[in-house]
């Protein structure tokens, strides 16, 4: 049975904060990697741009999107966590977060600590139709990282 307390789990304060004040919004003018994700079921959309530094790591991130609080907060938190990560570390973060949402075992050597504010999205697991919303930015990241530009470094 669901009540307001479950809603409080779904809409944790951190999520509402990122939804109301999303970080790193606006697309980069000179991205090395770019991808767009769309969920036709609810109309959620995320466009992600990444600029890589000389060492091949993520130097700057910008996103634009429209959609529900879950998809947009997930995108905002993701952009914060990506900064300074190598492409490999970004892949690992993606895999760890997906494992968390799927209630699966985390990839070897990874812990929930690395996920930072993303753990606030754990409450979404109780609402299966919303998991897709939380994962949309991450599917978009996967597409961005699959581009040839990401091999550098």
């Amino acid at each position: 049975m669901m009540g307001t307390s479950d809603l409080d789990d779904l809409y944790a304060e951190i999520i509402l904060d990122h939804y109301r004040n999303p970080r790193n919004t606006g697309l980069l003018a000179d991205p090395d990697l770019q991808a767009e994700g769309f969920n036709p079921f609810c109309g959620d959309r995320v466009v992600l741009t990444l600029a890589l530094g000389a060492d091949g790591g993520v130097e700057r991130v910008g996103f634009e999107g429209e959609g529900c609080s879950i998809s947009q907060a997930s995108a905002s938190i993701m952009t914060e966590l990506l900064k300074g990560k190598s492409v490999q570390e970004a892949h690992a973060l993606n895999a760890t977060f997906r494992a968390l949402m799927a209630d699966a075992e985390l990839p070897h050597g990874h812990t929930p600590d690395e996920l930072g504010e993303l753990t606030a999205l754990e409450g979404v697991k109780r609402f299966p139709v919303r998991i897709k919303c939380a994962l949309l930015p991450w599917a978009t990241l996967q597409d961005a990282l699959a581009q040839p530009g990401a091999v550098r470094g």
Partner: peptide
Amino acid sequence: LHPHDLGQVLDAEGVAIRTGH
């Protein structure tokens, strides 16, 4: 307020509406 979020809060109140396209 995105329809999806709205629909979720309404569902917690027992109110079934449709959200989407």
